[in-house]
Amino acid sequence: MRSGQVTIKDIAKELGISASTVSRALKDHPDISAKTKEAVNELAKKWHYKPNAVALSLRHSKSNVIGVIIPEIVHHFFSSVISGIEKIAHEAGYNVMMFQSNESYEREMANVQALLSSRVDGVLVSMSKETSDFSHFKELRNNGIPVVFFDRVCNELSSDNVIVDDFAGAFTAVEHLINTGCKRIAHLSAPQHMLLGQNRQKGYRQALLKHKLPIDDELIIKCDSFEEALEKTPDLLRLPQPPDAIFAVNELTAAGALSVVKKAGFKVPEEISIIGFTDGVVSRTSDPALTTLEQHGYEVGLRASELLVGRIKEGDMDYEPVTKVVKTNLIVRGSTKN
């Protein structure tokens, strides 16, 4: 039995025929006899022959690879998105090449260059927090590679987007807090250069305005990670009038706030209610379990990859971009009052 990558030339040499005959036999060409086809296919199977993907991509100007750039894979939302992407990609005959930016603009640019070098057929992107220059994404488009943004999108580029209804989700979360008797609701927010951060804060503000509650800028702080929540939540609790509820921009931030609030001696939810965004393992296993908004990451992944595969098959970069919106739903648990 041979070891290493088996080539058409190896099979040809073993059978005493030309490489072109082997190639045509593998493709079931009518000019090749049934006996030769049988011999070639039996040996190919025995030696575990696999076509050279790089050679095929060069021949057909396609790699059958989709690139994906995400900020961090540890988040439940992004891991759910990946599952949806891989389902559609597999069904359509594409492999998935995955990159993490780790919330770094420099890393994200390096990811894009690697995808360009790999001749991917299309790219799915959720941008890093640091990204404010989008020339690397324009380079993908200029090279004829369609790009679909998901969750964290770029308004400065004419590209397809798949987003969560962040405004409506935030509004629902804050209105739930208000309906359960909360009046001083803090918001741990994402950076406001991100559309996601803007829309979640707009939803927060609109819910307060609807119910005629004051908007106190002291209660709105940039804080969108577990570590930042541990650092900044104590400042909220030290205010002369501490909040009676916290709406966090994601589940890890909510979990960090919950930890601080409990250690400070406050009862959750009797004295301070807490609500987050994303229904992951953290939300379900916290004590008490976190009330949250389900973002349906799997559906986001399905829609984004369906859109990208469609663009690749069309083969035309001159298209009218579309934005698809995935609705959220509130999941009530023990961190908010009934």
Results as ranks from 00 to 15, higher is better:
Ile66Asn: 04
Ala39Arg: 13
Ser101Gly: 04
Val74Ser: 14
Asn52Tyr: 02
Val112Pro: 00
Ile11Lys: 03
Ala257Glu: 03
Ser3Met: 03
Phe266Ser: 03
Ile145Phe: 08
Glu314Tyr: 04
Ile82Leu: 15
Ala44Thr: 05
Lys9Asn: 04
Ser126Tyr: 06
Leu43Asn: 02
Arg238Gln: 09
Glu299Pro: 00
Arg24Phe: 04
Ile274Val: 09
Arg311Ala: 01
Leu307Ser: 12
Glu91Arg: 07
Asp28Lys: 10
Ala229Glu: 07
Phe171Asp: 04
Arg205Ile: 15
Ser259Glu: 13
Gly16Phe: 01
Leu140Val: 10
Val6Arg: 04
Ala186Val: 13
Ile312Met: 05
Asn102Val: 01
Pro240His: 09
Glu14Lys: 15
Ile331Gln: 09
Glu103Phe: 00
Val325Asp: 08
Phe137Val: 10
Asn329Phe: 12
Leu258Glu: 02
Glu108Thr: 00
Glu271His: 01
Asn95Leu: 11
Tyr204Ser: 06
Met194Leu: 15
Gly203Glu: 15
Lys337Arg: 15
Glu103Val: 07
Thr233Lys: 03
His48Ala: 03
Ser3Cys: 00
Val74Gly: 02
Arg238Pro: 00
Pro71Trp: 07
Asp31His: 13
Val74Leu: 09
Val174Tyr: 08
Ile215Trp: 12
Val112Phe: 00
Tyr204Gly: 02
Met317Ser: 13
Lys324Val: 14
Arg59Leu: 06
Ile163Asp: 08
Lys9Asp: 03
Ser158Glu: 15
Ser273Leu: 01
Val147Glu: 05
Trp47Asp: 01
Leu15Tyr: 11
Thr285Arg: 02
Val40Ile: 09
Asp235Pro: 00
His76Cys: 00
Val68Ile: 12
Pro269Ile: 08
Ala254Cys: 10
Leu330Gln: 07
Arg205Tyr: 10
Gly16Arg: 05
Val74Glu: 11
Glu251Trp: 08
Lys267Leu: 14
Pro146Asp: 13
Thr172Tyr: 07
Ser23Thr: 10
Lys129Phe: 12
Leu43His: 05
Thr131Phe: 14
Ser159Phe: 06
Glu270Cys: 06
Lys212Phe: 13
Val81Gly: 05
Ile145Leu: 07
Ile32Glu: 01
